[in-house]
């Protein structure tokens, strides 16, 4: 099922995220796929998240399809040039992938192979152009394909970035290049997010608010220090610090955020980062 069809139905779309394992034991990943698959519209498979070498998102997406759950195939520009990227997109279409999220990707210096060659032959915008070309039955160079893809293409945006104007400009470019939905970096301030939505609503493309489950006050402070475009307000950090039951507090915060952003956007993308098992409880508490 393409996410674009869900949006067209006027549904508040819910996606979550599973990281493929570092290794070949996919049992735990598949448990998460089954637990989440029953509750969400699709599951994103991250592409060597944080530049850490893992099992590929393409194969993970296929294993997901085999369990009747819709995947969102994440593709970054860090590890492949335009030949390999286009080829992997063709492969994805051939194994039944319908949704693709196009990202630039973190730099290799952040991961476990800082000595690797960072590719970045294309970037998120030109990758979207390449995928759009494949949808039209040609490759990036204009050569005709034997059978075209029919992807629903998505991209990302950071609502709390330092120069939000620059984010919006890039968002416009991504839309021109073929993005039909956006998933955002984690949102913790519903009011600020509503302001961002006021700015981008005229662009006419559905936006899904990113929700990262807070596991501890330390994690919140770590993200504030180290993760670009993530700002956890002090009030939420204290709420976590004062909680007797951190899991319950985290679920409560996420559910509240979802209810708040639901008023202004078109869906949520929940990033559990290890707490996949708690996502159903978050959805229950949010009334989804």
């Amino acid at each position: 099922m393409k996410l674009s069809e869900r949006f067209a139905d006027g549904k508040f779309v819910v996606t979550s995220e599973v990281a493929p394992p570092k290794g070949i034991d996919v049992a735990e990943m598949l448990e998460h796929v089954e637990a989440l698959g029953a509750r969400v519209d699709a599951i994103n498979f991250t592409d060597q998240q944080s530049s850490v070498m893992r099992l590929g998102s393409l194969i993970a997406a296929r294993l997901c399809i085999e369990r009747d759950v819709t995947p969102v195939f994440q593709v970054t520009c860090r590890d492949r040039n335009r030949i390999a990227l286009q080829s992997d997109l063709l492969s994805a279409a051939a194994i039944g992938v319908e949704n693709v999220l196009c990202l630039t990707g973190d730099h290799v210096t952040l991961g476990d192979f800082p000595d690797a060659k960072a590719v970045f032959d294309l970037d998120s915008v030109s990758l979207l152009e390449a995928a759009s070309a494949l949808n039209r039955g040609v490759d990036l160079a204009g050569n005709e394909l034997q059978g075209s893809t029919d992807f629903c293409l998505g991209a990302v945006v950071t609502p709390e970035a330092e120069h939000v104007d620059l984010q919006v400009i890039k968002m416009e470019k991504k839309i021109r290049a073929g993005a039909t939905f956006f998933q955002t970096q984690a949102v913790y301030d519903p009011e600020a997010f509503a302001g961002f939505m006021d700015r981008v609503r005229p662009l006419g493309v559905p936006v899904m608010a990113g929700i990262i489950l807070l596991k501890s006050p330390g994690m919140a402070r770590f993200m504030n220090r180290n993760v670009a475009g993530v700002r956890v307000p002090d009030a939420l950090i204290s709420e976590m610090a004062d909680a007797e039951d951190r899991v319950a507090a985290s679920i409560g915060i996420a559910a509240r955020l979802i209810r708040d952003v639901r008023e202004v956007c078109d869906g949520v993308h929940i990033m559990p980062i290890g707490w996949e098992g708690h996502v159903p409880a978050v959805l229950d508490a949010a009334g989804l």
Binding site: F120, D123, S124, V125, V156, T158, A161, I169, K173
Partner: peptide, 11 residues
């Protein structure tokens, strides 16, 4: 650092 020609990466 990523030689991006269409705008920043968000990092």
């Amino acid at each position: 650092a990523k030689q991006l020609v269409n705008g920043p990466c968000g990092g």
